[in-house]
Structures are given as C-alpha cells and as structure tokens.
Amino acid sequence: MFQATIWPEFFYSINNFTAGMSALPWLGATFILWIIVAKSFCYVQNIKFKTISFFWLPLLAIWLAGFALADMTAYAKELKANQQLLVYNSLERQDYRVCEVIFGGPEKAMEACPLGVLFEKIKDNVGPEDKIYIAYPPEIFNFYFRLRLLPYYQLTNKPEEAQAILFFMPNQQLDCSGETKEKLICRNNDGKIWGTFDLVANFGDAAGLLIRQE
C-alpha cells in the first residue's frame, strides 16, 4: 500500500536542509539575461562567443551565489549539530537523527530525544532469549526499531509470546488497556487475557515500551 502519510515528515526535513532557495528564480533569470546580452554584444562587435568567458565563468558566479544563499546556511547548521554530536557513538547519533524527523528540527531533538532512554530500558528488561513485538504500524519508526533491534534481540510477530512490546496508544493491532496508563492488560478477540504489561518508558506522549509482568 502506498504510504502517503509518511512522506510529508520526510520532505519537511529536506526542505529544512535547503531553506532559503527562493532567490534562485532571480538567479536563473539573471543567467538568461546575461547570455542574451553577451550573445548580442558578440554579434554586434563581430567577435567570437568564447564559452569560458561568456558562458562558464558567469554561470559559475551565479551558481555559487545560489549555493551560498541556500546551502551555506544549511551547512552551518549541519556543522553545528555535528559538533554537538561528536561525543556520541554511531547508534546514538542515529537515534538523534531519527528524533530530528519526529520533532521536526535539531534543537528540540537534542533536548528531548527519548530513544536513548527507550533502548536502555530494553537493555535492562529484555534478555537475549526474550522476544520483542513491535506494535507500530508499518511506518518509519516500525522499520527503524526493527533495524535497530535486529542485531541484538529476537523479534516476533506473535505478541502473545513477547516479553516486551513497543506500543503506541490507541493501537489498532492490539487491544490493550488499563485503569492507569502505567499498567495495561491485553486481550484477544474473545476477551481472553493474554498478557499484563508495565509501561516502563515513554516515547512521545502516546507510545512506549511495555514489559510483561512476572
């Protein structure tokens, strides 16, 4: 199925990266105007239209103006973010960058990225023999959790056999509810309870890590 809902988030991040490009139509028009002037000048003066002088060097100047207007700001932001992330390992940097997509910008992501805490909780509560069920719909986070956890944990497609569930509320795949948000009881279609879970870590407002009660 085509997942149109995911892409706006994605393009948002790309647009952020290249913000400030609105001056470029003017630069394009400047280049065209320059070519008309240069060609006319060469025709009137009966001199050769030298491509390096009349085409490539003016193009380079206008191109670099566009590059400076648009990309230099983005580069500065990138380099600043990179400088702050140097102390982290590659997985932590990856978590932070995924948080950028969630929060729509680097500043908030740096302050409030919950993924590190989430994966620490998994490490504390899930052993190598235990299985994890990812109850997210097939969106970017489902894929991200899958990719992130695959090398270290066993994943399962059967929630009944899972020790831990990455869950978000409300969830169309699982019927889990409780009197408090911290303790959830999960039932199957005929109402039979198949698991009782503690919410041990929050991921955003409505999602978190569920660990099966002993």
């Binding site: 790309i14 290249t18 490009m21 609105s22 470029l24 139509p25 191109w63 566009g66 590059f67």
Partner: peptide, 9 residues
C-alpha cells in the same frame, strides 16, 4: 529550486 540550483535554466 531546492534540488537543482539553476541547472534547468
């Protein structure tokens, strides 16, 4: 313009 600078001009 976010993608190509002035290439397509």
């Amino acid at each position: 313009f976010t993608s190509w600078n002035i290439l397509w001009y």
